[in-house]
Design a protein around this nucleic acid. Structure first.
Length: 187
DNA sequence: ACTACGATGAACT
DNA sequence: GTTCATCGTAGTA
């Protein structure tokens, strides 16, 4: 088994962390898979919840220590999870390649197609059972398990999805050739 | 109290 | 590729 990620992994520039998260094994209570798609956000980014140091009751976790979960509700109905990297920055986890607990994920999602279990931030959170109760929790402790990638991967960089501000920034990272992305990467 | 708006997903052509 | 249902959150008053 590969090594667990340390808090130092997250205490670095968010673009680097988001890139290096590709291929990392991410489990919640034993259910999950390999991270194949991320996006980065920080205070300088007009598309970020923390743009220019903006603070709301909901985004406090992004100003907390690196290596914690920032879970927010999207469109009033989906949950999305970010890994905090300090100082109002975080990497949004957008898609996983399902590896462990596939039956559990199928039951939670109500779909059979493995490619649709974790392809998208909302789907991924539903499949892993993530919600507001995980907001602010440390990623280094139970129920989370994050392990270094076992083999090198090729990372594609493109523009982000589903935002209306700063649409041209190259802050989306994906595992090149993966069939489990929420969408193809536009490089 | 009232309103506007999504870091989406599902269904559809 | 496209449309659109849906509702919590945050901003305004």
């Amino acid at each position: 088994m590969t090594k667990r990620l340390s808090s130092a992994f997250f205490a670095r520039p968010v673009d680097l962390v988001a890139r290096e998260l590709i291929g990392v094994r991410f489990l919640v209570a034993g259910v999950g898979g390999l991270i194949v798609e991320t996006e980065s956000y920080d205070q300088s980014d007009p598309a970020s919840h923390c743009f220019q140091g903006r603070r709301t009751p909901g985004n406090e976790a992004m100003y907390g220590p690196p290596g914690h979960a920032y879970v927010y509700r999207s469109y009033g109905m989906h949950w999305c999870i970010n890994f905090t990297c300090g100082n109002g920055s975080a990497a949004l986890i957008r898609a996983l390649e399902p590896v462990a607990g596939v039956e559990t994920m199928v039951a939670r999602r109500g779909v059979e197609d493995v490619r649709k279990l974790c392809a998208g931030p909302g789907r991924l959170c539903q499949a892993l059972g993530l919600s507001r109760m995980h907001d602010g929790a440390s990623l280094l402790r139970t129920p989370f398990e994050l392990r270094e990638r076992g083999a090198p991967v090729s990372v594609a960089v493109g523009v982000r999805i589903g935002i209306t501000r700063a649409v041209d920034l190259p802050r989306r990272f994906g595992m090149r050739g993966s069939r489990f992305l929420s969408r193809g990467i536009r490089e």
